[in-house]
Simulated assay, not measured.
Amino acid sequence: MNCVEPIRSEEDIENLKKVLINQSYRDYFFFLLGINTGLKLTDLLNLKFKDFKEQEGVMYLIINNIKYPVANIVKDSFYTYKKIRKENIEDCYVFASRKGNEPIDRSHAYRILNDAAQKIGLSSKVGTHTLRKTFGYHFYKKYGDLKHLQKLFNHSTSKQTLNYIGISEENTPKKVIELNL
């Protein structure tokens, strides 16, 4: 199995979004949801429209009776995507295959991401774990909350989480605190 990387550049993320939205709104929403939630691929592929619930202006994904809040960009894109799809789709898979009533499979998800990455000339290795790793990388860069990611990814050590999101321990931000009591 090849080791894939997170997408570190926000410009590359935007370029991938443009390619995917021109290709298919389903593919765009798949990418957008993956990089904004950090969900496992199996959870993403098995999502149904009824798994999205909005309460008091906040959208949640309900997976195994656990509520995951989603970003507003995901919420807005979800409603756009839902309008594109047929009515009465609550029991339908969000990322349905065009060849039946089942979700796309892992290999199709891989092709979606890999083909788009090739179109923009992305040099790093891209695969299905790229979505989760990209979420983790940018979450860590923004919030520095390694413990949250470690728990979310179900990793046993913080070193494992850093390695997974493509950050070496030498490059982790060091906080210098001067305590003068």
Rank of each mutant, 00 (worst) to 15 (best):
M1Q: 07
M1K: 05
M1W: 00
M1I: 08
M1N: 07
M1P: 01
N2C: 03
N2I: 12
N2P: 07
C3H: 02
C3F: 00
V4D: 04
V4L: 03
V4K: 01
E5R: 03
E5T: 04
E5V: 00
I7V: 15
R8H: 02
R8F: 01
R8A: 05
S9K: 06
S9A: 11
S9R: 07
E10A: 10
E10R: 10
E10H: 06
E11S: 09
E11T: 09
D12H: 08
D12C: 06
D12T: 07
D12Y: 03
D12A: 13
I13V: 14
I13K: 08
E14L: 12
E14H: 00
E14K: 04
N15D: 13
N15H: 08
N15T: 03
L16N: 03
L16I: 11
L16M: 13
L16P: 01
K17M: 15
K17H: 11
K17S: 15
K18H: 08
V19G: 04
V19E: 08
V19H: 04
V19C: 07
L20V: 07
L20S: 07
L20G: 06
L20E: 07
I21G: 00
I21V: 14
I21M: 05
I21A: 03
I21L: 05
N22C: 13
Q23Y: 12
Q23P: 00
Q23C: 08
Q23K: 14
Q23R: 15
S24G: 08
S24K: 08
S24E: 14
S24C: 12
S24M: 06
S24Q: 11
Y25T: 05
Y25L: 08
Y25F: 14
Y25R: 09
Y25K: 09
R26E: 11
R26S: 13
R26G: 11
D27I: 04
D27H: 06
Y28Q: 12
Y28H: 14
Y28T: 12
Y28W: 12
Y28G: 14
Y28A: 12
Y28E: 13
F29P: 14
F29Q: 11
F29G: 14
F30W: 09
F30D: 09
F30Q: 10
F30K: 09
F31E: 14
F31P: 07
F31Y: 15
F31A: 14
L32G: 06
L32K: 04
L33S: 13
L33F: 10
